[in-house]
Simulated scan of single mutants.
Amino acid sequence: MANRVESLREIDLFSDCSKRELQHIARAAEQVDFTAGDNIVEEGGGGSGAGYAFVIVSGAAVVRRNGRKVAEIGPGESIGEMALFDDGPRTASVVASTDMEAIMLSRRALKGIIDKTPSVAHKLLAELASRLRRSNRKLYG
């Protein structure tokens, strides 16, 4: 459980959450293992049933957009966190480049946490607004 809390604290989306809030999230999350070469998410995929995100605990993955490698990610980094909020299509494909351990959190679990601990929603909204501002600065200067 302590490892899950620390892994969640590392990602921007949950970085402002208190230890207590992170413990709630960690309890709702599941550990999943991937083998090198496993597809974790596929660009364009999504819709109902795909409402889950991952935080890498160990190992590494490759992120591709339109078939082009755009990043390599590792421990503490997240995959698919926007799926926690809507049914939109995945914006990239992610494949495990090594054996990988991750924490998986579903949209349903996050909604349950927010219902019980509304302060989590405020913190998540603030982080999403910050991301949108950064994106706007990149696009519009």
Rank of each mutant, 00 (worst) to 15 (best):
residue 39 N to S: 13
residue 28 A to G: 15
residue 89 P to C: 14
residue 35 T to A: 07
residue 111 K to S: 15
residue 53 A to H: 02
residue 48 S to R: 01
residue 116 K to S: 04
residue 76 G to N: 11
residue 103 I to V: 13
residue 134 R to S: 15
residue 4 R to M: 09
residue 18 S to Y: 03
residue 16 D to C: 00
residue 104 M to Y: 01
residue 75 P to Y: 09
residue 92 A to C: 12
residue 9 R to S: 15
residue 5 V to W: 03
residue 121 A to W: 07
residue 16 D to S: 14
residue 81 E to L: 09
residue 67 G to E: 06
residue 41 V to P: 06
residue 21 E to H: 08
residue 90 R to H: 01
residue 85 F to L: 07
residue 86 D to C: 07
residue 100 M to A: 13
residue 79 I to N: 02
residue 78 S to A: 11
residue 127 E to F: 05
residue 128 L to T: 06
residue 104 M to N: 05
residue 108 R to C: 09
residue 68 R to D: 10
residue 61 A to C: 12
residue 3 N to Q: 12
residue 3 N to Y: 08
residue 104 M to V: 08
residue 22 L to Q: 03
residue 61 A to T: 08
residue 80 G to H: 09
residue 109 A to G: 10
residue 101 E to V: 07
residue 8 L to M: 14
residue 45 G to L: 05
residue 67 G to R: 04
residue 77 E to Y: 03
residue 88 G to F: 05
residue 108 R to V: 15
residue 50 A to P: 02
residue 72 E to M: 01
residue 2 A to H: 14
residue 10 E to Y: 09
residue 79 I to W: 05
residue 19 K to M: 09
residue 110 L to P: 01
residue 92 A to K: 05
residue 128 L to H: 07
residue 109 A to S: 13
residue 65 R to C: 13
residue 110 L to E: 11
residue 99 D to N: 10
residue 32 V to N: 12
residue 18 S to H: 06
residue 44 G to V: 10
residue 139 L to I: 04
residue 99 D to H: 09
residue 26 A to R: 01
residue 68 R to K: 14
residue 112 G to D: 05
residue 81 E to Y: 13
residue 126 A to H: 03
residue 96 A to I: 09
residue 24 H to N: 10
residue 125 L to V: 12
residue 95 V to P: 00
residue 126 A to C: 01
residue 68 R to T: 07
residue 38 D to L: 11
residue 16 D to Q: 04
residue 112 G to S: 07
residue 138 K to T: 04
residue 85 F to S: 06
residue 79 I to F: 14
residue 11 I to Y: 03
residue 140 Y to H: 10
residue 28 A to S: 14
residue 86 D to V: 10
residue 27 R to D: 13
residue 129 A to C: 09
residue 8 L to F: 10
residue 83 A to I: 15
residue 100 M to G: 04
residue 137 R to Q: 11
residue 92 A to E: 01
residue 73 I to N: 05
residue 89 P to F: 07
residue 97 S to Y: 11
residue 55 V to F: 08
residue 83 A to N: 00
residue 99 D to P: 05
residue 55 V to L: 11
residue 15 S to W: 06
residue 65 R to M: 12
residue 87 D to I: 04
residue 111 K to L: 15
residue 48 S to A: 10
residue 39 N to D: 14
residue 62 V to T: 04
residue 31 Q to I: 15
residue 124 L to W: 11
residue 120 V to I: 15
residue 68 R to F: 11
residue 47 G to S: 06
residue 54 F to R: 03
residue 27 R to M: 15
residue 24 H to Y: 13
residue 126 A to L: 11
residue 48 S to W: 03
residue 70 V to W: 06
residue 56 I to E: 01
residue 104 M to S: 08
residue 81 E to V: 04
residue 141 G to I: 06
residue 124 L to S: 00
residue 112 G to R: 00
residue 36 A to G: 12
residue 40 I to D: 01
residue 37 G to L: 13
residue 43 E to R: 01
residue 91 T to S: 13
residue 38 D to H: 14
residue 44 G to K: 11
residue 70 V to P: 06
residue 129 A to P: 00
residue 23 Q to S: 04
residue 2 A to G: 13
residue 82 M to V: 14
residue 34 F to Y: 15
